[in-house]
Design a protein around this nucleic acid. Structure first.
Lengths: 201, 201
DNA sequence: TTCTCCATGTAAGTAGTTACATGATTGG
DNA sequence: CCAATCATGTAACTACTTACATGGAGAA
């Protein structure tokens, strides 16, 4: 516990939640305005973390009060705009969060898998289309992620390989899901048409 | 706001959310009491869906009012206990939900991947331990899931193959994550010690 | 007797979203 | 001039969790 720096920063830092750190991280990567942070999230981490606009502006205020970012008005023409930069304290706080060995639960909430789990309540044909729907969803996702790949490779060339790592993580686990679906589809298809999806005991 | 639902079944069914269908599904698989439903969730779908006890009892009431389950008091000794069975309407509603082609978003919220995405703010050593932590987490998860495998195989032998499908889905996508981590670990380790985790442009 | 499990229920709180509200600027 | 985009802010709401509250039953 580094209770060393006892600017009010340190005390406030303790209560920051993941959304605030996400905002801080995006500012550290060069996102200036709240609007830009939202866009950057949509272009990058949206597949494993989302944040709504309504969370961003309060988070920025919080971070500024804690001294982790500094903001100033920088209107574009007559349109109001506040831009932020990360401070030294902010860099330290971000790194401390990244290093912290708190639990990192893998939180998955997937109605698709839930439905599949209960698919014994369906007839074979319907269960098969459910399985196919789950597969197709992952195929779509892989396609989408592949489209982002060039951006991530570009970031890698510029010295930041981590977006590419998380992208690969996403691509590969959806590919794994596709494989499992493909493995079970023929087995299901082999059952008698019109039968319940379960076999008799 | 509530149009005093006098046509029970159809109108009420429309507003059931995922938690209620999960409860319905568990009753359909033989879970009797609220307590047992909670336990069954913890033993099965907890890795892709969770439900807290505080949601279960209200859901059961809702389902019963909608005629999708029927409950009766069945105390064990002097200990109060209400047991439920799925009704024909309930079976139909469950199947209709499973067949519905609503969107099934794959919702993942993973602080581990978020941290990895921002790992360029760390020095090489710390970034490497983060990557290793993400890998170890998946290794743990695979271990846990393997322990459930026998239960799922047993269910398969008894005619319900779907728990095994979802289990395999979980195992394989975590195995994919482990592979990606193992691929990047040596690359990171190859960088100079003490260097920032990013390479120069 | 005391600990753990069985069993239900609810009040209070958190985290997050959607939707609304406002208005400037740019590009076709 | 109209639509899309840039830009901020907030009120109301939903979904869900945590924690508390209660108490019987079985086993050590």
């Amino acid at each position: 516990m580094s209770d060393e720096g006892r600017t009010k920063g340190a005390t406030e830092t303790a209560k920051l939640g993941p959304p605030a750190y996400v905002v801080l991280g995006m500012v550290s990567l060069g996102a200036c305005s709240g609007y830009e942070i939202k866009q950057m999230v949509e272009l990058s981490i949206r597949f494993f973390w989302t944040i709504s606009q309504a969370q961003i502006y309060p988070s920025l205020e919080l971070l500024e009060r804690a001294g982790l970012v500094s903001g100033r008005e920088q209107p574009r023409g007559r349109r109001a705009r506040r831009v932020y930069e990360i401070t030294a304290d902010g860099e330290a706080a971000l790194a401390a969060w990244l290093r912290a060995d708190e639990p990192m639960p893998f939180e998955l909430r997937d109605i698709g898998m839930v439905k599949l789990f209960f698919a014994s309540a369906l007839e074979r044909e319907d269960a098969l289309s459910l399985l196919e729907a789950v597969r197709r969803r992952s195929e779509e996702r892989v396609k989408t992620l592949r489209q982002i790949e060039s951006t991530a490779r570009h970031a890698e060339q510029e010295g930041n390989a981590y977006p590419l790592v998380t992208l690969r993580l996403g691509i590969e686990f959806h590919k794994a899901m596709i494989d499992v679906c493909r493995e079970f589809e023929p087995q299901l298809a082999a059952l008698e048409p019109g039968q319940p999806a379960t076999r008799a005991p």
